[in-house]
Structure formats: C-alpha cells, structure tokens
C-alpha cells in the first residue's frame, strides 16, 4: 500500500525549514526531463556549438596569426590558451539558458510554479530542482567541450579531467544567480538588459587575450566579474595549480550559489505565498 499525500507531507513536519522544503527537488528535475525528452534538440545543440565554433575559428584562425603564447606554465598554442576560457563560457551559457529564459517562461507565462506550489512542494524544492537542472545542462556542455578539447590535443596532462568538476561549479554558480535575478524580472524588456551585460563580460573577461593588456583598475573590475573567476577556476584546475588563488575562485562561486539560492527561495515565497 502506497503512502498517501498527507502521510508523505507529515514526514518532514518539525524538521528544519519544513515550510519551504519538502525534500523533493528531484521531482522538479523529473518534470524537466519529461519535457526535455520531447523537446527541440536543435536548441540544445546550438547552445553547445557556440563555444566550439569560437574555439575552431579563433583558436586555429586567429591562432595562425598569433602563434604560441607564453604563460606561467610555459609556451602554449593559442587554441590551448583560449580553451579553458571557452569552457567556462560554455558552462555559463548552458546554465543561464535554463535558469533565465526558461525560468522566466515558467514563472510568468505558463504559471508552472503556481501549480507546483499548490501541491505540498515548497519554494526551496522548486529553486533547487530548477538550479540543478540548469547546472546539469551546463555540466553536459562542459563535458562535451572537454571531450572535444581532448580530441584536438589541447589537454596535455591528466589534470585536464578536472575541467569537468571545475565547470560544474561554474555552472552551479551561474544557474543559482541567474534564477535569482530572473525571479525579480517583470518583463521581457528587463530580461534583455540582463543579456546586454553578458556579451561584454564574455569579450572582456580575458578568454581571448591576457588580462595584462588592461590597466590595473580595469583588471580589478574584470577580476570581480563571475566569468573571469570561472575562467581562472577552470584554467587553474586544468593546470593542477592548487593554490590560495584557486581557493578564492571556488569560494567566490560558493558564495554565488548560496546567495542565489537564498534570494530565489525568498522571492518565490514572496510571489506565491503572498
């Protein structure tokens, strides 16, 4: 005999955060998987292709003009120089695709979260489930990109495998933060503002050239941006460089994840429990 909905809801009663969390974010993931199975695969493929196209065109096109680049770990090809930055961007794009436009649609148009929160689910279940899904997409993009890097001979040490967990941390941070911001957005217009910010961040975060081309104050601003932190995290992890700097990068993302989760839950609660 299966448990009833009431019995199930009473199991978590008295536990910490029982008003906000039913312990079932995996059901939100399952919902996304069912929807994804029959969705347009072309959207998935195009999101993944973007950084690959950058790698091929810039890495081997511009790379032929630039030649090798000297870094702290020695001489590398231009393609190998830009690959970690593109990997971080790929993880970011994958995570943001789900946590921004898709979340906006579910929040404001299909009213899906209204339906979820009319059941015994809580806002933290919804936030965690959606963020986990976005991070899975980011992680999948990053893994595929790592395989391509490896096939192109751009990964020279075993540390290269750390690209995947590093990219997943980056994806988690962007997914969490992206969903928090989206939950406060009221119109498509505001959403576009958000995207206006992303392109310069991508171009100036030093994925294509060393940050030293900028003056000190410029470098300081860029280093405070999440994509730069993500690029450093992936580059250091892939080089096996376990330093305080790496710890700072990881901490930056942990804070981003926690802040994002906190505000997403708070906002969903305010929107649906008013």
């Amino acid at each position: 005999m299966s448990s009833t909905a009431v019995e199930l809801s009473e199991r978590r009663l008295g536990q910490f955060g029982d008003k906000y969390f039913a312990g079932r974010p995996q059901q939100v993931l399952l919902r996304n998987w069912i929807s994804f199975k029959s969705s347009a695969w072309i959207a998935v493929v195009s999101g993944f292709l973007e950084p690959v196209l950058y790698l091929l065109s810039f890495g081997y096109g511009v790379g032929a003009l630039v030649g090798n680049i000297s870094t702290t770990t020695g001489q590398v090809s231009y393609a190998a120089f830009i690959a970690p930055g593109l990997l971080a961007s790929s993880a970011m794009n994958g995570a943001l695709l789900d946590s921004t436009w898709n979340v906006f649609f579910k929040l404001n148009e299909s009213r899906l979260y209204n339906a979820m929160l009319a059941t015994s689910l809580g806002p933290l279940d919804v936030a965690l489930g959606e963020i986990a899904w976005a991070l899975m997409r980011g992680g999948a993009y990053a893994t595929a990109f790592t395989i391509i890097m490896s096939a192109l001979g751009l990964i020279t040490t075993w540390w290269g495998i750390l690209a995947i967990p590093a990219a997943i941390i980056v994806a988690f941070g962007f997914a969490s933060f992206g969903m928090a911001i989206t939950s406060y957005m009221k119109s498509h217009h505001q959403m576009n503002f958000f995207y206006i910010f992303l392109l310069p961040m991508f171009l100036f975060s030093g994925a294509f050239y060393p940050l030293t081309v900028f003056p000190g104050w410029g470098q300081a601003i860029i280093k405070a941006l999440p994509l730069r932190q993500g690029i450093e995290l992936v580059t250091r992890a892939m080089a096996g460089e376990f330093s305080v700097h790496l710890l700072v990068n990881v901490t930056y993302f942990l804070v981003m994840i926690c802040v994002g989760l906190f505000f997403t839950t708070k906002r969903l609660n305010a929107l649906f429990m008013k």
Partner: peptide, 11 residues
C-alpha cells in the same frame, strides 16, 4: 497527471 502526483511524492 503523472508529474503532479510526483510533486506530492506519490509513487
């Protein structure tokens, strides 16, 4: 119907 039941945690 299926996923709505899953939101309640039903098997």
């Amino acid at each position: 119907i299926f996923i709505y039941g899953r939101y309640f945690g039903l098997s």
